[in-house]
Write a protein that binds this DNA or RNA. Sequence first.
DNA 1: CGCACTCTTGACCGAGATCAACATTCGTGG
DNA 2: CCACGAATGTTGATCTCGGTCAAGAGTGCG
Lengths: 250, 250
Amino acid sequence: MSYLFSAADTNPIIRKLETSLPLSDWEREAILALPVQERQIGARQDIVREGDRPTRSFAILDGVACAFKITGEAKRQILAFHIVGDIPDMQSLHLQKLDMSIGTISPCKVGFIQHEALEELCSRHPRLTHALWRETLVAASIHREWVTNVGRREAYSRASHVLCEFIVRLRVMGLARDYSCEMPMTQEDLADSMGLSIVHVNRVLQELRRRELIELRQGILTVLDWQGLKETGDFDPAYLHLGRAEKAAA
Amino acid sequence: MSYLFSAADTNPIIRKLETSLPLSDWEREAILALPVQERQIGARQDIVREGDRPTRSFAILDGVACAFKITGEAKRQILAFHIVGDIPDMQSLHLQKLDMSIGTISPCKVGFIQHEALEELCSRHPRLTHALWRETLVAASIHREWVTNVGRREAYSRASHVLCEFIVRLRVMGLARDYSCEMPMTQEDLADSMGLSIVHVNRVLQELRRRELIELRQGILTVLDWQGLKETGDFDPAYLHLGRAEKAAA
DNA sequence: CGCACTCTTGACCGAGATCAACATTCGTGG
DNA sequence: CCACGAATGTTGATCTCGGTCAAGAGTGCG
């Protein structure tokens, strides 16, 4: 299968949706016609906060963001890393109140889309409803894998798993060559995504380097031994529901 | 707001959906008209397994089930408890391959519904699409809370949180009076839902009893001090997105 | 060039795991 | 209806993975 190259291929939302099901020209145009308000946001800023009642959703057009919660003990848990093409608060289309916060990790370009525009899109294009619903289901699947990762894998395996997922998702979006990518998360971010302490994450990463599974410095992650990293991370990309993109990316 | 009592009120799917948005008679009838194949399943049986490609989804009509994964180290992580009204594998409507298994805890009555019937329902009733999509989003929200619970709360708080969620969800469905309910999960089930060992769960439960927050024996959970349990569990039901049902149930 | 953020290292600690009995409950068949 | 075996719950002893604390080393940005 191959597509003609077009403006559509440069639109991250279309690219993301098309990894699961190909869209018609008609549907692509509908997406390109969405009124999107772009905004550049600096690193480490909240985009939306738990408790907000958004009237719009937003897509990540550049950079890395994360969804997180703060517990009563003021501990942060990162729930997902969001990369180009993700619509992290899609849920707000159907759920009034946000149950998490979303903030940038690196500087991000985001595109806000009013809910009415999305509702309009869905009512006119049932297959796009399907595609967007599907995206939210994949997000839920990733959450389930994270529950498992945090609940039942030891630190070393857990860290490997998070790295595997991150790079595969970037590869699917064409943002990583040869298992190497920019990784703007600090060790504190990684710790909060893994339910570990910063110090321990530091030690685990050193061990991964010592065993020559990865290289990681200056925000560049390079996987030296993909097979090895997958195995130590108990990583099976099935939960990402990549379909045909799976073989190429993972 | 009050409804006339009718057959619809005894249908758990309708009851569940109506906790978020009221349905028209027309919509209720469409749900009641769904061809449902009921089946009784014994305790501790798998209903569907990771890797399956179901052509139908199922609703829990009676009993308690759970979704779970088994890691490469053969450890089980429970991802959710499913009670009456839940459609645990709704996702299979849009995602080919199941990324988790679902099994019974107590004996269950389940109702299978072919995907075509659900697709038909959605195409005829956009508001039901909305309602079902919404349910899957709430499920995702619960997953996020579980990531947080397992990742960033200590055992004592973590256990309290799981108990709080379970009883609130039962209350919403009218299955628990006065913060007391049947709880068929064994300590092993609880351990696998909390990412803890059985032994430690046992000790944590004893501590909860000793501090007179709960009573728990012979499969009956009674909360003696709801406020106290909520506080130790850092439990805020906002993530369940109950809407108006929230005040009554939590 | 200096201050703040991030990473690293070492020492020590503790929550929760593991192991190994033993007790209790429950379901099942005689 | 009872008995018995399996599943579940309980307890104590010990261990360990990962947390905490504290200090220093890089790094980078204003």
